[in-house]
């Protein structure tokens, strides 16, 4: 391994790498935002939805959670074009990741809401709160404490899953890295470097998650 040579290539490739990194971050952020909004609805439907709605949403989440993310990504990429939705790889990929994210967030939200003792709702009713008020002042804040740490973990999952978009040709960090490798043949160095960048991002998210967990813990 020739460090100087690697550093030289790295410097030459700095723009594609930064672009790739930017792409990875945008993919992750978009997937998390869309997935979280969807996921909160999924979680609420699973907990409070009428029976038919609950059923449909349950099938949706079970199906998504039983399918590998890569299959979701490939299916989204190939299938959507076929049914006439003309999405580019970037959009198809985001859609797949957001759907994946929504099933995770949905389960987290459902778990948090269901872990709140029934007595809380009863106590809220007893002092005359309506259901929206109960949710806003009693259930929601309690659920949020539980949801936040798990949600930060999901964010890290999304960053990791964003690498799968390289397979359908989205020029995120991993695909940019592969392109550089195909020209420079420095596979060891550049895969290591890419892995290192991902590690830094995810490690930061993980530490942040721990911090959130400490901050949201109910004092006892």
């Amino acid at each position: 391994m020739d460090i100087a040579h690697f550093l030289e290539i790295l410097w030459l490739a700095r723009i594609p790498i930064l672009k790739g990194l930017g792409m990875t971050i945008s993919i992750s952020l978009l997937a998390i935002c869309v997935g979280t909004v969807l996921g909160v609805f999924v979680g609420l439907a699973l907990t409070y939805g009428a029976r038919p709605l609950r059923w449909i949403v349950r099938i949706y989440t079970d199906f998504i959670r039983g399918t590998p993310v890569l299959v979701l990504v490939l299916a989204s990429y190939y299938v959507l074009g076929t049914i006439g939705l003309d999405l580019n790889p970037f959009q198809a990929g985001i859609l797949a990741l957001a759907v994946f994210c929504s099933s995770h967030v949905g389960e987290i939200v459902r778990g948090a809401l269901q872990s709140i003792p029934r007595g809380q709702t009863e106590a809220a009713k007893a002092i005359g709160l309506t259901f929206p008020q109960t949710f806003a002042y009693v259930l929601g804040p309690q659920a949020l404490r539980q949801v936040l740490p798990a949600w930060v973990n999901t964010a890290a999952e999304m960053v990791k899953a964003s690498t799968l978009l390289s397979i359908i040709g989205v020029a995120e960090l991993l695909l940019r890295t592969q392109e550089i490798i195909s020209r420079s043949f420095l596979s060891l160095e550049f895969y290591f470097f890419a892995g290192f960048l991902y590690f830094i991002i995810n490690y930061a998210i993980e530490r942040f998650g721990r911090y959130v967990e400490r901050k949201t813990a109910v004092p006892s």
Binding site: V159, S166, S187, L188, Y191, G195, Y198, Y203
Partner: peptide, 22 residues
Amino acid sequence: TIIRNTPILVLVLFTYFALPQL
């Protein structure tokens, strides 16, 4: 910590394409 914070696709590609260099 390293394994949990690295995407598995990167690990798969690293082992298959990069480790032969070593």
